[in-house]
Computed example of a mutant assay.
Amino acid sequence: MNSPVEPAAAEGLAAIVLAGGGARRLAGLDKPMIEVGGRTLLHGVLAAVGPADPVIVVGPERAGFPGVRWTREDPPGGGPVAALATGLECVPPGATEVAVLAGDLLGVTASTVRRLRAALGAGDGALLVDEDGRRQWLAGVWRPVALRAALPARPSGAALRRVLGGLSIVEVPALRGETFDVDTPADLDRARRGARADD
């Protein structure tokens, strides 16, 4: 049964999920489509932003994701800033917040997105910060107007931390495992062992 407060909780929220990249350290595997615990990483991230409208995925289109708007950065492989710029083109003017997440995050949940939204306040963005104090640039909620103002004229190849680092950012300490992503075979083995342990 759907919660009657869920639609109101997502009012004004859009989502951009970055699901491109070559996954060179994983022998070219399509990282967002890797299965852990019976579902793909991308399915897990999309579940975290489920109430958002629209949900925009930047990357090659995959089957089995109804209700998602697909788009591709220009040029393909142009990096996360180019992907963000393309995703923002699909965010409607009425959206006051946009969740920006990597498509290979294993630990983000709907609760993560709610905490980030609650922390945003008057800031330009709210980001998860890992246990070492590192900002997770692809695990945040932002004001779309601030993102658009910060984007360079030529986003291809630019670094997110340099483009967005000057904005007003609220740091949100991550819960255990919340910033875990899958970059290497060791990461994947660890994730699958953890999923089996939870069964």
Score class of each variant (00 low, 15 high):
Thr71Lys: 07
Thr71Gly: 06
Glu73Ser: 09
Glu73Cys: 09
Asp74Arg: 15
Gly77His: 13
Gly78Pro: 08
Gly78Leu: 01
Pro80Thr: 02
Ala82Asp: 03
Ala85Thr: 13
Thr86Lys: 14
Thr86Ser: 11
Gly87Cys: 03
Gly87Trp: 05
Glu89Asp: 15
Glu89Tyr: 05
Cys90Val: 05
Cys90Leu: 15
Val91Cys: 07
Val91Ala: 07
Pro92Asn: 07
Pro93Arg: 06
Thr96Val: 11
Thr96Leu: 09
Glu97Ala: 15
Glu97Val: 10
Glu97Trp: 15
Val98Met: 08
Ala99Trp: 13
Val100Cys: 04
Leu101Gln: 03
Leu101Pro: 08
Leu101Ile: 01
Ala102Ser: 13
Asp104Lys: 05
Leu105Ile: 06
Gly107Cys: 01
Thr109Ile: 10
Thr109Tyr: 04
Ala110Gln: 07
Ala110Glu: 12
Ala110Tyr: 03
Ser111Asn: 10
Thr112Ser: 12
Arg114Phe: 10
Arg114Val: 11
Arg115Tyr: 12
Arg117Pro: 15
Arg117Phe: 14
Arg117Ser: 02
Ala119Pro: 10
Ala119Trp: 02
Gly125Gln: 00
Ala126Pro: 09
Ala126Trp: 01
Asp130Thr: 10
Gly133Arg: 10
Arg134Glu: 06
Arg135Met: 05
Arg135Cys: 03
Gln136Gly: 08
Leu138His: 05
Ala139Leu: 02
Val141Gln: 11
Arg143Gly: 12
Ala146Gln: 05
Arg148Leu: 10
Ala149Asp: 13
Ala150His: 10
Ala150Cys: 14
Leu151Pro: 13
Pro152Glu: 00
Pro155Ala: 00
Ala158Met: 11
Ala159Val: 15
Leu160Pro: 14
Arg162Asn: 15
Val163Tyr: 02
Val163Lys: 06
Gly166Ala: 05
Ser168Pro: 12
Ser168Tyr: 09
Ala174Val: 06
Arg176Ser: 12
Phe180Cys: 03
Phe180Thr: 06
Asp183Ser: 12
Thr184Ala: 14
Pro185Glu: 12
Ala186Gly: 13
Asp187Thr: 12
